[in-house]
Nucleic acid binder design. Structure first.
Lengths: 150, 150
DNA sequence: TATTGTTATACTCTATAACTATA
DNA sequence: TATAGTTATAGAGTATAACAATA
């Protein structure tokens, strides 16, 4: 009968509610390390790899070049990453973690772990696995991994 | 062994990826109606109820008074909602949909339906139900419904 | 004084587009 | 010309805090 369903009738809406809640909590918890969620994603993306060009990072993180540039600025100011010239191509350069950045990643990873564990603890272990599975299916089938238009 | 888990090891991260994808698609689809996702949430929240005060709406939508005020400004400019004085309390007033707003809600609801149906179609019907169930559990157990600190 | 709502300010996130320096 | 990055601009989303009017 109801022509107009409730907002909560949409799975996308529920998803947004939950996602916002988790992200907010995480944002709060990492704010004591003076880092934002997007910054953390970049730091983590640079961990392990020796040096990555902004354009590759942009593809990897699903952001535009401009957005990456700005993020990189902030992290450089904070002394967590470094820009280095390319020998082969003078146009480009590469981004890598500074010593401080390398030290900080495991610390923040701990926060991420805790945040995740706490939030999803209200689900049983099996349910958590089920949720992860469903999300993975959605990610795979939709080819999510960020590929900005740019 | 790995001290630092991948970003994708965190359920919160997966959730954010999927949620962003759904919201982006929806944002695009409603943009042809010149409305944003947050605006849609407010429009839908006002549908049905006759008139709601900004403060009640703030609690309902999980936003601060200031954020509600700004959103209401935009929707008023677009002619989709109206502000009316309260007879009893001269400090407050109430928000309600304009005739145009009332007409627009079912239209946008249709977009929301389609967006949701399309995106989650890659899951089977049973899996969709399972996902909704899990999200509901998280919402209930965490008392999500937005209750900003303000 | 407490409450309702607005306004001012600020910051994150992100996009688009114009621009610079190479290639 | 094409590509790598930066910068300029803009707008959504949201928060905090100061403020005005009323209770």
């Amino acid at each position: 009968m109801s022509e107009v369903p409730e907002l909560s009738a949409h799975t996308g809406y529920l998803l947004r509610m939950v996602s916002n809640a988790v992200s907010h909590r995480f944002a709060r918890s990492v704010s004591v390390e003076s880092v934002t969620v997007a910054e953390w994603a970049m730091l983590r993306s640079l961990y392990g790899d020796e040096a990555v060009s902004p354009s590759i990072l942009a593809r990897k993180m699903g952001m535009t070049k401009g957005a990456i540039s700005k993020l990189a600025d902030r992290l450089t100011e904070k002394g967590l990453i470094e820009r280095a010239a390319n020998l082969d191509d003078q146009r480009g350069h590469s981004l890598s973690l500074s010593a401080a950045g390398k030290k900080k990643v495991p610390v923040i990873a701990e926060f991420a772990e805790d945040n995740d564990a706490t939030f999803f603890a209200v689900l049983g272990g099996e349910e958590q696995e089920r949720l992860r599975h469903l999300l993975h299916v959605l990610i795979d089938k939709h080819g999510l991994s960020g590929v900005p238009i740019d």
